[in-house]
Structure formats: structure tokens, C-alpha cells
């Protein structure tokens, strides 16, 4: 299955390989300047703050909440947000805020494991395919095509059937689902950078393959991979919470964002906070990751 590539550039029989007609960008007369990073973008700052806060929740949940995440008193069940319980309580009287804070351990580490699996396996596949080319490339990319042909969720479910339910297994399953994206990006980046004049010039001045890879190809591909990393982190948070919601992730009473929403679903008519708040946290984290990914892509020289 060859995918129609986005760059369906036509051949240009009449185009010269020579004269570069001057292009007149409005700013061209200006002395080239270093792109300014100094101008603060509020959305981006907020995104980093959100991810920072969630990271702290993961590292030291006890610092943010004194309530237990797994036990509560029946007397306090289904309290609306308010005094004593910032975001209310669930059907067993457990503090929802505390469960969200502690839930970040499962969700965030799960997403990190997933992204690590995708990054290591996928990038390696892509690098090798892009660097070696030829038959190796063709075979590897067909394998990636096959992985892409199975919808991510179904692929994850297939892996969960083998590995069994649980946080780590769900994370690995999600990671395998992202291998294809990393592989394709890494390969595309290697090919893009390899075709550039400066890489050829580096070979032309006697550079060995390893030296050129280290000096030019890796540094120039890193930005895009980093951007994908942030994007996939957000996607992994989503996917893990989906698996948790379906009941294939962490088993109850472990707090996990997807599972929290699944549990709160039974009380959706009466206790809106049980589903709304965990959901908002997921949205905030994923949105932040996407925003950061976007900013990394834009910083590229």
C-alpha cells in the first residue's frame, strides 16, 4: 500500500536548474535577525505550568492533598464540590481532588512509558530505514504500513489480550500503537535532511557516515522528533484514559483518570462533578502537550 504523499510535487520540465529569480519578501531589506523568543506567549506559558503542576502531582502527590485517594467514609459520599472537599466526593466518600492528584501517577507514567516505547522502537526503525534505504527501507516501511492499517485502539486491545489488563500493559499497548508514527517521521526527517545540500557538502568534505549522522542529521531531525514526542505524550494520555475507561487499565480502586470518569458515569444524572473534573484535567493536559508540540515545531530554524 503506497500512501499518496502530501508532496505531490509535479515534475517541472520547463523549470530551470539554474537561475534563482530573486524573491522579494517584504522583510528582505532588513538585516536577518535571530528569531525573538523573548515575547512571552500566555498560552504557551500556561501550557508549561499545567504540565509542570501535573508532573509535581506525579512526583509528590502527598504534598498537594491530605485526603486519602483510596478510602473514604460512607457518611461523606457524593458530596458536591465545596468545603473540605475541593472537587466533591464519590460514591464511597473518597475525595475527588485527591483521586485526581494521585491518579496522575498512573496516567502520566503510563503515557511516559508509552511514548518511550514508541520513541525508541519507532525512531530506531525510521533511522535505520531512512539511512540504509533500498530493500531494508522498503521492507521496514511495509511493516509500518501494516501497523498503520490496524486502528490504534484495536491494536492496543489485541496487545492487551496477550499481556493482560493493567497500567503497564495498557501503556505498552499504546506505545506499540505509536511506533508507526515515530518510524515514519524519523524516516522522513532523515530523508529530508539527507537530501539537503549541507549534508552532501559534509560528505563531500570527507565526512564519514557516522560523523555526518552525528553532526548534521541527528541535530537537524531532533526538533521534529521532539515535537512529535510532545504530541504523542498527549495522545498517549488520551489513549490510556480510554483504555482505563473501558476497564483494561489500572484495576479499581486505583485512581486513574479514565477509570474515574467510568466510575462517575453511573452518577452522571446526580453528581456531575465526578465525570466533569477528571475530564477537564485530561483535556488540559492534552491541550498543553499539543500547544508545546506546536511551539517546538515553530522554533525550527
Amino acid at each position: 500500500m503506497s500512501h499518496v504523499t502530501l508532496t505531490a510535487a509535479p515534475e517541472t520540465p520547463g523549470a530551470p536548474d539554474t537561475a534563482a529569480p530573486e524573491t522579494q519578501a517584504p522583510d528582505e531589506a532588513a538585516v536577518p535577525r535571530r528569531p525573538r523568543i523573548s515575547r512571552l506567549q500566555p498560552g504557551l506559558v500556561l501550557s508549561w505550568l499545567v504540565l509542570g503542576l501535573v508532573a509535581l502531582w506525579t512526583i509528590a502527590p502527598g504534598f498537594f492533598t491530605s485526603h486519602s485517594a483510596t478510602s473514604g467514609t460512607a457518611r461523606d459520599k457524593l458530596l458536591p464540590p465545596g468545603d473540605g472537599h475541593l472537587l466533591g466526593t464519590d460514591e464511597l466518600g473518597r475525595d475527588l481532588y485527591s483521586r485526581i492528584v494521585h491518579g496522575s501517577i498512573n496516567s502520566v507514567t503510563g503515557a511516559l512509558v508509552a511514548v518511550a516505547v514508541g520513541l525508541v522502537v519507532g525512531t530506531l526503525l525510521g533511522l535505520v530505514a531512512g539511512s540504509l534505504g533500498g530493500v531494508t527501507d522498503a521492507v521496514m516501511m511495509r511493516i509500518v504500513d501494516v501497523l498503520l492499517s490496524i486502528p490504534g485502539l484495536l491494536l492496543s486491545l489485541s496487545i492487551i489480550i496477550i499481556l493482560g489488563f493493567g497500567t503497564v500493559n495498557a501503556a505498552i499497548a499504546v506505545g506499540v500503537g505509536s511506533v508507526a508514527s515515530f518510524a515514519r517521521l524519523a524516516r522522513a526527517e532523515v530523508l529530508r535532511v539527507r537530501r539537503s545540500d549541507f549534508v552532501e557538502a559534509a560528505f563531500g568534505s570527507g565526512g564519514t557516515f557516522v560523523a555526518v549522522l552525528r553532526r548534521h542529521i541527528l541535530p537537524n531531525s531532533a526538533g521534529s522528533v521532539l515535537a512529535l514526542l510532545a504530541l504523542q505524550f498527549g495522545a498517549a494520555i488520551l489513549a490510556i484514559s480510554t483504555l482505563g475507561f473501558l476497564g483494561y487499565g489500572a484495576p479499581p480502586p486505583t485512581p486513574e483518570w479514565g477509570l474515574l470518569i467510568a466510575e462517575g458515569r453511573n452518577y452522571v444524572a446526580t453528581s456531575w462533578w465526578l465525570t466533569t473534573y477528571p475530564g477537564l484535567v485530561v483535556v488540559a493536559v492534552v491541550l498543553s502537550a499539543n500547544r508545546i508540540s506546536h511551539s517546538i515545531r515553530k522554533v525550527q530554524p
Partner: peptide, 22 residues
């Protein structure tokens, strides 16, 4: 679209039920 892509499908369904049904 960035907002849409960040919303978990299952949660969106529940929120819609909450708003439109309840």
C-alpha cells in the same frame, strides 16, 4: 481543532448526555 483533538471521546459523550439529556 486543537481543542477538539484534546477531548477524550468517551468523556465528550458523557458531557453531551449530561447537558442535552439531563
Amino acid at each position: 481543532p486543537s481543542l477538539f483533538i484534546s477531548v477524550p471521546v468517551f468523556w465528550l459523550g458523557i458531557v453531551l448526555i449530561q447537558v442535552f439529556s439531563f
